[in-house]
Design a protein around this nucleic acid. Sequence first.
DNA 1: ATTTCAATGGACCTTTATGTCCATAATAGG
DNA 2: CCTATTATGGACATAAAGGTCCATTGAAAT
Lengths: 145, 145
Amino acid sequence: MISLKLTSTSEYALRAMSLISFLPKSQSLRAVAIAEKTRVPLHYLQKILRKLVKAGLVVSIKGHGGGFRLSRPPGRITYGTILEAMGYEKGLSDCVFGWGRCRESRPCPMHGSWSQLNRQFVAWAEDTTLAHILDYSREKGIADY
Amino acid sequence: MISLKLTSTSEYALRAMSLISFLPKSQSLRAVAIAEKTRVPLHYLQKILRKLVKAGLVVSIKGHGGGFRLSRPPGRITYGTILEAMGYEKGLSDCVFGWGRCRESRPCPMHGSWSQLNRQFVAWAEDTTLAHILDYSREKGIADY
DNA sequence: ATTTCAATGGACCTTTATGTCCATAATAGG
DNA sequence: CCTATTATGGACATAAAGGTCCATTGAAAT
């Protein structure tokens, strides 16, 4: 059975951000704890967290009692922002055929089917936020990831 | 702007199959010609074509006047089949969190949003065939890729 | 039959993604 | 002011994806 697959890095980032979004206001979580809960390799997770910090999605606190927390309310962090922080936009062609100009006016043979799927992906990435996870979890009785 | 991205290999395969599907019945096209038209690196394309042959999606004819043609009508070749021939199902988890058991009954925090997107992808892969490309192209006045 | 053409298979290389490690820097708490 | 603690940065290692090359095989045309 075929299924959509993101890069490991992106998946890891989504997992980590999900977990962090469950934290009570102004509480932080250490990288080690995040790695354990999300089952992401610790040392690699550290790299990912650094990217998230650089992208301004999470804030890091050093020293005793430190860790990571969201930089802004979960409702203002979209999946797309997280993917972008992982460098997801690399292949910026929105045309499978690699045509520089692939528009409604001069479409490639796959334009119709592809752009339809792509629109759904973009909508998912831009409209869904971490708040969605919290709402969904509350609804389903999932307390803390 | 974020956009959905397949692996290069998969994109190349889709391009090649599209082009081949434009061929008149029982006519074939050489790898070199396919490479030129699709702008896929020749030697890499050859590898991809071999996979497509092995998967039974195209038929190869050796020697003078040889090349590649579809093994069955375009309406019976889905995008999903092509992706699978490229080994796309590798990461067979349909759960971003990597949960072995991620079902409606015991969902991960992202299950709601993710499975919705995934369903759209699966529908695209399984319901769209190469015939769609031909119909679309005829409609748009694209004659031959 | 011979020649020429085109796919095949596999070896090999390069780049990117993934993953590991550790020495350093910063900070909170005692 | 120490000290334990935690993030940071970069070096390094391994795996996977992407890409190249060519000697071999099979078939078609003359």
